Amino acid sequence: MDDLDLPTAAPATIEEFRDRLTEITDGLPRRLRQCADHIAANIDRIAVSTVAELAAGADVPPSAVMRFCQILGYSGFSEMQKLFREAYAPGFPDYSTRLKNLKDGGAGSPSALLAEFIEAGRLSLEALAKSADETALAQAVSVLAGADMVHVIGLRRAFPVATYLAYVFEKMSVPAMLHDGVGKLDRRHALRAGDAVLAITFAPYSEETIALAQDARDRGLPVVALTDRPTSPL
């Protein structure tokens, strides 16, 4: 099927939407690719954004967003937005909105501020539970459990995640090596047959993390990626 042919049915779940987005993105013309990239990076904003807002964020005319919705199989933006409003309604307001409200209005007291952070964390974890791909999670666990050594890399804002995972592996007696980039040392020479890489990066993506993941793939090693969108370079 040509990438711009309309599918017979629109995605009915968030998981199907992500799969369809990944499937079509590479074959889209420039403006529609901009739509795909922006929506993939801001998927939690679809339920609360207008066509004009998404178009401005993607730097395309509103007509491009409408065409993009049709390529996905929807009659228009409203039908696509309905899917996300129904899926994310229990979690409104989303994290970005809550953070903005906190910055604008403050919490009133230290205890209220703490309550805001606790509630934000709770809602984020609930959203994660709803959106987690159980099949992909099981595959990732299988890969890491079967590795002789797990090489963990996550730099800049992903570094706390990578460091904590390496710490957990250590406590569980799982052979693991943290590639921390200290001194700009290149530790790719430590990769061996039978090892696996756990790579973590979010936009703007770490070139070092992507390079290590690519090197591992070139050597035939499995790579488990923790990232933020289906179109991530990982």
Results as ranks from 00 to 15, higher is better:
211 A>H: 02
94 D>S: 08
151 H>N: 15
206 S>R: 01
224 V>L: 12
138 A>N: 12
207 E>V: 04
74 Y>V: 03
210 I>V: 15
116 E>H: 13
177 M>W: 07
18 R>D: 07
105 G>R: 11
23 E>P: 13
128 L>W: 09
14 I>C: 02
22 T>M: 15
175 P>I: 00
16 E>M: 13
125 L>T: 04
157 R>N: 13
139 Q>G: 01
14 I>Q: 02
199 A>C: 09
63 S>G: 01
73 G>R: 00
14 I>R: 04
217 R>C: 05
116 E>R: 09
5 D>G: 06
6 L>I: 15
190 A>L: 14
152 V>S: 12
31 R>T: 09
160 P>F: 14
130 K>Q: 15
132 A>W: 14
71 I>V: 12
65 V>L: 03
68 F>M: 00
179 H>A: 04
70 Q>M: 05
226 L>G: 06
204 P>V: 06
155 L>Y: 09
78 S>N: 04
155 L>I: 15
49 S>Y: 00
84 F>Y: 01
11 P>D: 12
12 A>K: 15
165 L>P: 02
40 A>I: 05
182 V>H: 12
43 I>T: 02
22 T>R: 15
164 Y>W: 15
2 D>W: 06
228 D>A: 06
143 V>C: 02
67 R>H: 14
95 Y>D: 08
148 D>C: 05
187 R>N: 09
128 L>Y: 12
106 G>S: 06
31 R>F: 06
174 V>R: 09
200 I>H: 01
32 L>M: 10
164 Y>F: 15
92 F>N: 05
203 A>I: 05
115 A>G: 12
163 T>R: 10
126 E>A: 15
185 L>Y: 04
125 L>N: 05
78 S>Y: 06
106 G>D: 06
66 M>E: 03
44 D>L: 10
7 P>K: 11
45 R>F: 03
29 P>K: 10
164 Y>S: 14
141 V>R: 12
210 I>S: 08
32 L>D: 00
195 D>N: 13
128 L>S: 10
132 A>Q: 14
191 L>I: 08
42 N>T: 08
158 A>T: 12
68 F>E: 00
71 I>S: 01
55 A>C: 08
64 A>V: 01
34 Q>N: 11
119 E>C: 09
128 L>E: 12
68 F>L: 04
111 S>P: 05
75 S>P: 04
88 Y>P: 03
74 Y>T: 00
169 F>P: 00
38 H>I: 02
95 Y>A: 07
15 E>V: 13
184 K>Q: 10
62 P>Y: 01
93 P>E: 07
101 N>A: 12
180 D>V: 08
99 L>Q: 04
196 A>F: 04
55 A>D: 00
174 V>G: 03
99 L>E: 02
220 G>Y: 05
166 A>D: 03
81 Q>H: 03
228 D>S: 07
214 Q>M: 05
194 G>Q: 10
136 A>D: 06
226 L>K: 03
227 T>Y: 06
206 S>K: 01
100 K>L: 11
134 E>G: 10
37 D>I: 14
217 R>S: 07
122 R>A: 08
117 F>M: 12
91 G>K: 05
42 N>F: 07
117 F>I: 10
135 T>Q: 15
191 L>A: 06
186 D>N: 13
139 Q>K: 14
97 T>M: 03
178 L>G: 01
89 A>D: 06
69 C>A: 08
53 E>C: 00
152 V>H: 11
222 P>K: 09
107 A>S: 11
202 F>C: 03
105 G>Y: 11
158 A>Q: 10
151 H>Q: 10
